[in-house]
Amino acid sequence: MRVVIPVHDINPVRRTPWVTYGLIAANVVVFVLTPGVVGSLVGEETGLARLCDLQAFLDHWAAVPRELIHGQLPDLVPTGGTGVGPRGPGCVVGPPGYDKSPALSVLTAMFLHGSWAHLLGNMLFLLIFGNNIEDRLGHLRYLLFYLVCGYAAAYGFALLNDGSGDPLIGASGAIAGVLGAYLVLFPRARVWVLVPFLVFLPLRLPAWIVLGFWFALQAVYSYGGGTAAGTVAYVAHVVGFLAGMLLAWPLRPGTPQPPEPRGLLFGRRARHTW
């Protein structure tokens, strides 16, 4: 859940964030190639065959907590076909025709998303906050940082849900690490956000408010507070965020801060009294 929608941060960069752009492009390409996505774009109905194809795809490429912690790979998986059994139509299952590495599945799962909303929300946060972290770390260190945060988030979630056989997908854990690093390195950077209050109200807030509030929500939802977590792995967000903070902490002393904006406060021109 995102109560505030970031639009732009006032934090210039010195170099083009090629890795951030590449990660966004890779996520979009993989999503378009995911079974059923192209059909949904042209208005085709989601039938049983497409759902079976998607389930087979996720069983192959998504991270599964039970597999990550215990190495329990299933003997039977959906094969992508459909058939009629004693209980009616369903997906055909059989021995997996591939060798799956649970550790490698964490990497592939980082580029899988369940919907356009899931994808676009993640990519928006990565685009706004990732460029400054890449600028601070450099291209290769930033890519390594991103992947380490993604792995930490996935395994952190799996440790607390080691019996789950549900697929874990999405770049949220890695991007949460980027947000954690941004909070540590650029807490006073200003971020333009849209806040839904009858209409979308534009505000310019310090990053520590925007990202601190985001993290607080993830923490609350991860413990079952507020609305039900549903299928969102909030624990992975919390672990990824903390991993990003921890990795970025040693870089705080040498990080140049963005210029302090003048004349504007929370989207309005400030009036000075003397």
Rank of each mutant, 00 (worst) to 15 (best):
R2P: 00
V3P: 11
I5G: 00
D9R: 10
D9K: 09
V13D: 09
V13W: 05
P17Q: 13
T20W: 14
L23W: 11
I24A: 09
I24Y: 04
A25S: 15
A25R: 15
V30Q: 14
V30K: 14
P35G: 11
V37A: 04
V37P: 01
V42I: 15
G43W: 09
G47P: 05
A49I: 07
R50F: 00
Q55T: 14
A56P: 09
F57A: 03
F57C: 03
H60L: 11
A63K: 01
V64K: 05
P65C: 06
P65L: 06
E67N: 06
L68G: 06
L73D: 04
P74R: 11
G83K: 04
G83M: 06
G85S: 08
G85I: 10
G85L: 08
R87I: 08
C91F: 08
C91H: 08
G97H: 07
Y98T: 07
Y98G: 10
D99L: 12
S101T: 00
P102W: 02
A103C: 01
V106D: 04
F111G: 02
F111Y: 13
F111P: 02
W116I: 10
A117H: 04
F125H: 13
L127G: 05
I128R: 06
F129Q: 04
E134N: 08
R136G: 03
R136L: 06
G138K: 05
G138E: 08
H139D: 11
R141A: 04
L144E: 10
F145C: 07
Y146W: 15
Y146K: 02
L147T: 14
V148M: 12
Y155P: 02
A158G: 05
L160G: 07
L160S: 12
N161A: 14
G165W: 13
I169T: 09
S172W: 11
S172Y: 06
G173R: 01
G173N: 02
G177C: 03
A181M: 12
A181G: 15
Y182T: 10
F186A: 09
R188N: 15
W192G: 09
V195G: 01
P196Q: 02
L198N: 10
P202H: 08
P202Y: 06
L203P: 01
L203H: 09
P206W: 07
I209P: 00
I209Y: 07
I209G: 00
V210K: 08
G212V: 01
W214K: 08
F215V: 01
G226Y: 08
A233R: 00
V235Q: 01
V235E: 00
V238G: 01
V239P: 01
L246R: 06
P250Y: 06
P253W: 06
G254V: 11
Q257V: 02
P259W: 07
P261Y: 00
P261I: 03
R262K: 13
L264P: 00
L265E: 10
F266Y: 12
G267Q: 02
A270H: 08
R271V: 15
R271N: 05
T273M: 05
W274S: 09
